[in-house]
Structure formats: C-alpha cells, structure tokens
Amino acid sequence: MNGLDILALSASALVGLGIYGLLAARHLLRRVLAFNLVGSGLFLWFGAAGARGGVGVDPIPQALIITGIVVALAASALGVALVVAHARLSGPTLPEEAPCDPEPDNRA
C-alpha cells in the first residue's frame, strides 16, 4: 500500500464519519464538528489529488485548501456562536427533533 492510498482511505474515513455525524447526531455542537470532519476529509483528498502526478506537487490545490480552511473556520465560528445562542434560549437540539432524553417532560 503506497502513501497515496493511505491518504485516500483516511480522507474517505473522515468524510464517512462526518456524514454519519451530520445525519445521526442531534446535539448541534456535534453536527458542527461533523461538518468539520467532512471538510477535513475533502481537503485531505484534494491535497492527495494534487500530489498524484508524480513529478513534484501541484501547488494550486494547496492554495485552494488554505482558502477552504479559512472559509470552514468562519462557518464553524458562526455555527458555534449560533449553537451557543440557541442553547441559551431553547437547549442544544433543534425544536422539531426529540430531545436526547426520551422521557416525557413533566416540568409544565
């Protein structure tokens, strides 16, 4: 197994884990983390694709990855800020999704 295969497999694993998190996690912070996992997987994959030619490394994917990381950071920052604001008012899950605790709410 050469180095590129390892990169491609790790990238696939990251993307797969992230997609699972986006679909299965109800806690909003976990979902923001899952988005970052998918993003990291894609960037890893992109970087590996840039090294594929054999002769030297294509610099354009690297430049694009850096831009992509900045964009993902901004998106995560906004996401976390929203999660915090949302959690303060109404808890860490979206209202239409059942809270993590399946017991009926008796507070009312």
Binding site: L22, L28, A75, L82, V83, H86, L89, S90, L94
Partner: peptide
C-alpha cells in the same frame, strides 16, 4: 429566529 438560522446553516 435562532432555530431557523441553525437549520438554514446546517
């Protein structure tokens, strides 16, 4: 508004 924004962001 926050719930709608969160859903939109996802």
């Amino acid at each position: 508004a926050l719930a709608a924004a969160m859903r939109y962001l996802l």
